[in-house]
Design a protein around this nucleic acid. Structure first.
Lengths: 145, 145
DNA sequence: TATAATTAAATTGTGCACAATTTAATTTAA
DNA sequence: TTAAATTAAATTGTGCACAATTTAATTATA
């Protein structure tokens, strides 16, 4: 095997690259299912938080999703225009914007609930690999750089 | 533990979400190092292919990076304007655009070679976890959905 | 060999991501 | 208590991603 001081720069020796490619690949596999309920992937994970929390402010939502207001503000305006959430300044502290789920947003949950099962058929990992991957990814996320 | 038919829709039960979050998190960790050589992450992985292949057409580059011409065309124009690659239609088949590395592009490699080692200090995985992650990610990428 | 089908890039339009800045509200401290 | 510091969203600007369409070149076929 020919060695070079540049080996560390080869695409095949990167861990970050397959992570980046895989992330996009999986989002692409979600697309046909998400199209049926009219959500993008980012809107879908935002709705996941809403289905669980019912009401959060932008900062909390951002902490859940690792996203900032620059991404969330336009996204939440879109979810509002679709009628799935409302956006209102908090009475207690008007700096906070409270995002709350609507009845239509709740109804969407019943359509969305099939998606995880449909997606399961699109991956080829063993249950063990899934658990390993999950653990490793959250280990990376947990480390404050 | 309270169970619900909606458990599959919880963010914490997703595999895709930490993948998506991790991918962005790691790209963010590259940013300070990439800033020093004036490349974005996508430009960096494109240059990795160029450093290895010297000359490729857009289609081949897209296959390496899992990206299409919609993403690559503007990106390659930027790399061209920075002087790291040239873009020329192929003589044999004018549908093909040949992207070739320049001398400046080659020189950049010597600056970039430090980056993988600098990044290594920013992750917290054991070597075994790294190997596991690598294998699982390429298994996902390999499966034609 | 014309015509149809295919192929490769480029283009168009939408939706993130995110750094940096701005605006407005609240909290802290002199 | 008022001025400074902090905080939360929104805004601005850049750079992807990617679906869908267009343009131009090449190949296959009737």
């Amino acid at each position: 095997m020919k060695q070079s001081k540049y080996d560390a720069l080869k695409l095949e020796n990167q861990l970050c690259f397959p992570l980046y490619a895989c992330s996009r690949e999986i989002v692409k596999r979600y697309k046909p299912f998400l199209d049926e309920i009219g959500l993008t992937y980012t809107q879908y994970i935002a709705m996941m938080v809403m289905w669980e929390r019912k009401s959060v402010n932008v900062k909390e939502l951002g902490e859940c999703l690792y996203l900032d207001s620059g991404t969330l503000t336009p996204l939440l305006k879109k979810l509002e225009s679709k009628g799935y959430v409302t956006r209102m300044r908090s009475d207690k502290d008007e700096r906070n914007l409270v995002v709350a789920i609507t009845e239509d947003g709740e109804k969407l949950k019943d359509k969305a609930v099939e998606i995880p099962y449909q997606i399961a058929g699109c991956t080829n990992l063993t249950p063990e690999e899934g658990v390993q991957l999950y653990g490793i990814l959250y280990k990376i996320l947990g480390k404050t750089p």
